[in-house]
Simulated scan of single mutants.
Amino acid sequence: MTVTLDPTDWLILAELQRDGRVPFTELGRRVSLSASAVTERVRRLEAEGVITGYRADVDLAKAGFAVLAVVRLKYPGSRHEPLHRLLGERSEILECLRTTGDDCYTLKVAATSMPHLERLVDELAGFGSTTTSIVYSQTLPYRGPGLRNATPS
């Protein structure tokens, strides 16, 4: 079900993506609402499932995960539960997208070293053919689901 959002809701979402810990009084100031009005809107957005959570952005290299990679997986099987279990168990797998095209899954993974990445890719290769790309740098940092300064037409 699609939720109808007005321009103020979009402003609130943009501000919360920029800083999920902003106090409601400051958030209200930024979007020209009282603290109580902005609190009510945020609670509604949470209740309707538009806001699904809050997160901390982590510098992976400083946390000991110096190797970032994208792994594409061609999964020939029809039973995806074993792979889904592995995805849930391995915290090094940061994201997984089920995709169309030649690859079935695209995964973003973090590893402490090249041998660590190799072990992880070997484990994933047990499910199908893999292609791994090492990330040199992140040109565009995570910015949520692309809602900053964007509104549907």
Rank of each mutant, 00 (worst) to 15 (best):
D57V: 15
D57H: 12
D57E: 14
V58S: 12
V58M: 12
D59P: 12
D59G: 11
L60F: 05
L60M: 15
A61Q: 14
A63H: 10
A63W: 04
A63Q: 13
A63S: 15
G64T: 12
F65C: 13
A66N: 08
A66G: 12
V67H: 00
V67L: 07
L68C: 13
L68V: 14
L68A: 09
A69M: 04
A69W: 02
V70D: 01
V70R: 02
V70G: 04
V70P: 00
V71N: 00
V71F: 02
L73P: 00
L73A: 02
K74P: 04
K74N: 14
Y75C: 07
Y75S: 14
Y75A: 06
P76W: 10
G77L: 06
G77V: 05
G77W: 03
G77H: 07
S78E: 13
S78H: 13
S78Q: 08
R79H: 11
H80W: 07
P82W: 08
P82R: 08
L83E: 05
L83G: 03
H84K: 14
H84M: 14
H84N: 10
H84W: 05
R85E: 07
L86A: 09
L86D: 03
L86E: 03
L87D: 03
G88L: 04
G88C: 07
E89P: 08
E89C: 10
E89D: 15
E89M: 09
R90M: 14
R90F: 12
R90W: 05
R90G: 06
R90V: 11
S91D: 12
E92I: 05
I93P: 03
I93Q: 02
L94Q: 05
L94M: 15
E95M: 09
E95P: 04
C96N: 09
C96Y: 02
C96M: 07
C96W: 02
C96K: 00
C96D: 04
T99H: 05
T100S: 14
G101N: 10
G101I: 12
G101P: 03
G101K: 11
D102R: 11
D102E: 15
D102L: 09
D102A: 14
D103M: 09
D103E: 10
C104P: 01
C104W: 02
C104N: 06
Y105I: 01
Y105S: 02
K108N: 13
K108A: 10
K108R: 15
V109Y: 00
V109E: 01
V109F: 02
A110M: 06
A110S: 14
A110D: 03
A111D: 00
A111W: 01
A111I: 06
T112K: 05
S113T: 08
M114G: 07
M114T: 11
P115C: 09
H116N: 13
L117C: 07
E118R: 13
R119W: 08
R119A: 15
R119G: 08
L120N: 02
L120K: 01
L120I: 06
V121F: 03
L124E: 00
L124R: 00
A125K: 12
A125R: 12
G126E: 09
G126Y: 04
F127G: 07
F127E: 03
F127Y: 11
G128N: 03
S129R: 05
T131W: 07
T132D: 02
S133C: 06
S133Q: 11
I134T: 08
V135M: 04
Y136G: 09
S137C: 11
S137K: 14
S137T: 12
S137P: 07
S137Y: 09
Q138H: 09
